[in-house]
Write a protein that binds this DNA or RNA. Structure first.
Lengths: 136, 136
DNA sequence: CTAACTGCAAAGTTTTTGCAATTGC
DNA sequence: GCAATTGCAAAAACTTTGCAGTTAG
C-alpha cells in the first residue's frame, strides 16, 4: 500500500497562505488569514483559504490548534514547542521549546492506549493584559 | 468591586445537565447531552443546554475542552486529571491523575506571562482501535 | 491534456440570541 | 414580585461543498 499522501500543486493562493502562517507566531484564525491574504490577492476567497488550510494540514506543513472556546487557529511552525493562551484577551503565543520529561509509559499503563504524542498548553495573563487590570 | 460572579437559580434542566455530565467520563458534546437530557425532560431545548453549559462553565462547575478538530466537549469532573484522545476514533478518555512536575516558572520567564494553569493532552490509539487495525 | 485548484454562492454545522411565558427564591 | 430561566425559532458564526472556469505540471 502507498502511504505517501502528498500530491498537490503549487498555487499563488496556497503559497501566500503558507507565507502568512510562517510570518507570524500569533496562531491566526482562518478569517484573519483570509483578510491578510486579500491584501495581496484581493480576489482570494474564504473557501480557498479553508481548502488550503485543510490541504496544508494533510501534507503536514501546518498544524491545527483549536485550543480554546472559539474557532480554529493554525500554526505554521512545526518545530517542537508548546502554547500559552491569555485568559483575558484570548491571544495564543508560542512557548519556546523547553524539555519537559513526561513519562508516557505511565500514561500508556494507566489507560491501555498506545501513546504517540503529547500536547502541553499553559494558561495565564499576557504582559499587556496584566498591565490593564485597572483600566476600563 | 465585586468579584464574586455566581448568582444563579436551580432548575431541573440545569441539575439534569450537571447530573448527566457527572455520570460519564466520555466528555460528551452539547448535542449528546441534549439527546440524553430529553429522555428525562422531553421538552428541553438545545438552546437551554447551551445556555446551561455556558453558565455552569462560568460558575466553575464544568470545563469546556474543545480538543480536536470537531465540536466542543464538556467535562464534569473537576478533579485534577489529563486527557487522551484516540487518533483513530476520536474518543476522549480521562488519564487518572499522575503527577508531572512541570516547571511553570520557566514558562513564565520565557513568555512574560503570569502562568496559572497547564493542560496536558495525549494522543494515541485506544485498545479497541488497536485491535481493529486489520479489519475493514 | 487533465487533474487539481480557483472564486463564488449556496448549504451544512455548531452555537447564540430575542421573545413571551414560566419558575425559583 | 421580579429577576433568572425556559422553549421555540430565527439568526449568527464558522466551515464545507457544488459548479463552471482556470491553471500547474
Amino acid at each position: 500500500m502507498d502511504l505517501s499522501v502528498k500530491k498537490s500543486k503549487n498555487s499563488k493562493q496556497k503559497n501566500l497562505i503558507l507565507k502568512i502562517l510562517r510570518s507570524t507566531h500569533s496562531h491566526p484564525t482562518a478569517q484573519w488569514i483570509f483578510e491578510n491574504a486579500r491584501k495581496e490577492l484581493p480576489n482570494i476567497s474564504l473557501g480557498t483559504v479553508y481548502r488550503n488550510l485543510s490541504n496544508l494540514k494533510k501534507e503536514g506543513k501546518i498544524r491545527e490548534l483549536i485550543m480554546g472556546a472559539d474557532f480554529s487557529r493554525f500554526d505554521g511552525d512545526l518545530r517542537n514547542h508548546d502554547h500559552i493562551q491569555c485568559t483575558a484577551c484570548g491571544k495564543v503565543d508560542d512557548v519556546p521549546f523547553i524539555f519537559f520529561p513526561i513519562p508516557m509509559e505511565q500514561v500508556a499503563q494507566a489507560t491501555g492506549y498506545q501513546v504517540f504524542r503529547r500536547r502541553l498548553k499553559f494558561f495565564g495573563t499576557c504582559p499587556e493584559c496584566d498591565n490593564q487590570t485597572t483600566k476600563i
